[in-house]
Design a protein around this nucleic acid. Structure first.
Length: 418
RNA sequence: GUGAGUGUAGCUCAACUGGUUAGAGCACCUGACUGUGGCUCAGGAUGUUGGGGGUUCAAGUCCCCUCACUCACCCCA
């Protein structure tokens, strides 16, 4: 179509203005909220030794078996672009001897090789928090509340919370055994996809949309009926805490979480505005992961938010055409240097400012200022200079006044808009 | 990895069953306005119809291949 030869790799995305501004705004809200809840940022590599993900995410999981960007570096080491955040965070917390309990947040790009569709790209952005060393069900509820506040703050109205408990080391295998037994007895009634699920990840049959399967599943053993007494108590306390916090949620037996390290509480935020990939974020408890990395027994809970999906679900805040920017306009060569000095002065005062050095004609400069979305123009002309003033034009209203040079910063600041 | 759909100007889309020089709106550029953006008016520029091959007197239109995008399965953030 165009003569431009290069396009971005499949499944990647560009954030050009104004999308980049929107992204930044969401990230800033996340940082702010995370700070309010006592989380501190941890910055970790974008790639890890491949084993980090295999061990934690699970050898049988889809992520590990077919979605990882794995490569060998020049010394033959197997490395993998991170497909998710939690394993790297746990690895880093242990490696840095971070004192437990600790609360960490992180954000950045993640990579999974999948067929792109709405809300699913190969490079995507995640915002995550992890509470390491906290066992209380109140922490689960607190984290669920964190996500709820986050989405609410962004004006995502139709966000629902789904909740489940998948048990622990003790009760999960029993349940799984039960379910597999049930499904195997009714094997003929299951669809082909479910036969595959039965082998690979039995809990996944609950996701099947086939009505015959659904009917059968109504009689299948339910995960929550098989919780051991401790898991059962933990789960009730999570629910009671959510009720006290005034959070609405739905119980969902089918919420299994595809990663191996989860136990007990799992939850997910769903939005109706997203299409098939309707999960805005999700998380749960992972009390065994730290141990698996060779650390001490450490309970943990976390949450990961899909930034890209969040941006899809966010209402288009009708953005002001005017930005926080002043534009300095000059008339002839004689004013070029005074105008440039003014530019420096404005910036020194903390006012974002630009000018057009190429311009010959003022008309062009005003056009540029308008196109750049500037809030105002400061006009430096021969008349103004001889009288010790600048002309200041409000680009929103069109009003223009003359202001003394020594008050320019104050006057400009008053006109800046976001 | 599987399936379906779509590719025409920077963007959104036209072009009757194959028919002659592929159009419109928005955006863009120029001027009216040599010290003033938006609004108005007048004018202007723009395409290997995604790419390659084939059928035909003739292909944007039909067929094959390929690439890209989109949606869904799957999976998850």
């Amino acid at each position: 179509m165009s003569s431009f030869k290069h396009s971005r790799p499949k499944g990647t995305q560009d954030f050009a203005p104004p999308q980049s501004d929107r992204k930044h705004r969401v990230e800033e809200l996340f940082r702010h909220l995370a700070g309010l809840y006592g989380f501190q940022e941890i910055v970790i590599p974008v790639f890890e030794h491949t084993e980090v993900f295999i061990k934690s995410t699970g050898v049988g999981s889809d992520i590990v078996t077919k979605q990882m960007y794995t490569f060998k570096d020049r010394a033959g080491r197997s490395l993998t672009l991170r497909p998710e955040g939690t394993p790297g965070v746990v690895r880093a917390a242990l490696e840095n001897r971070v004192r437990m309990p600790c609360r960490l947040f992180y954000l950045g790009p993640y990579f999974r090789y999948e067929r792109p569709q709405k809300g699913r790209t190969r490079e995507f952005n995640q915002l995550g928090i992890e509470a390491l060393g906290e066992a209380s069900p109140l922490v689960d509820a607190e984290i669920i509340g964190f996500g709820d506040s986050f989405f609410r703050e962004l004006g995502i109205a139709d966000c629902t919370i789904q909740l489940n408990s998948i048990g622990c080391r003790e009760c999960r295998p029993l349940y799984r055994q039960n379910l597999v037994g049930f499904l195997t007895r009714h094997r003929d009634e299951l669809c082909n996809d479910c036969h595959v699920r039965l082998e690979r990840n039995p809990l996944r049959v609950f996701d099947c949309k086939n009505s015959a399967c659904q009917n059968l599943l109504a009689q299948a053993p339910k995960p929550r009926e098989h919780l051991c007494s401790e898991c059962d108590r933990h789960f009730s306390e999570v629910r009671e805490a959510l009720n006290r916090q005034g959070l609405q949620y739905e119980l969902n037996d089918r919420l299994a979480r595809g990663l191996d390290y989860y136990n007990r509480t799992t939850f997910e935020y769903l939005s109706g505005r997203l299409g098939a990939q309707d999960s805005l974020g999700g998380g749960g408890r992972y009390d065994y992961l730290v141990e698996e990395f060779g650390g001490p027994e450490t309970p943990a809970t976390g949450l990961a938010i899909g930034l890209d999906r969040t941006m899809l679900a966010m209402p288009e805040l009708e953005q002001n055409k005017r930005r926080r920017l002043a534009f300095v306009v000059w008339m002839s060569d004689a004013e070029l240097e005074p105008a440039r000095k003014l530019l420096d002065q404005l910036r020194a005062e903390g006012i974002p400012a630009r000018m057009d050095f190429d311009a010959g004609r003022p008309k062009r400069q005003f056009k540029l200022a308008d196109a750049a979305g500037a809030s105002c123009c400061v006009i430096v002309g021969p008349d103004e200079l001889t009288r010790g003033v600048y002309s200041l034009k409000d680009l929103l209203t069109g009003e223009q006044t003359e202001v003394p040079v020594n008050t320019i910063a104050i006057q400009v600041r008053a006109l800046l808009r976001d």
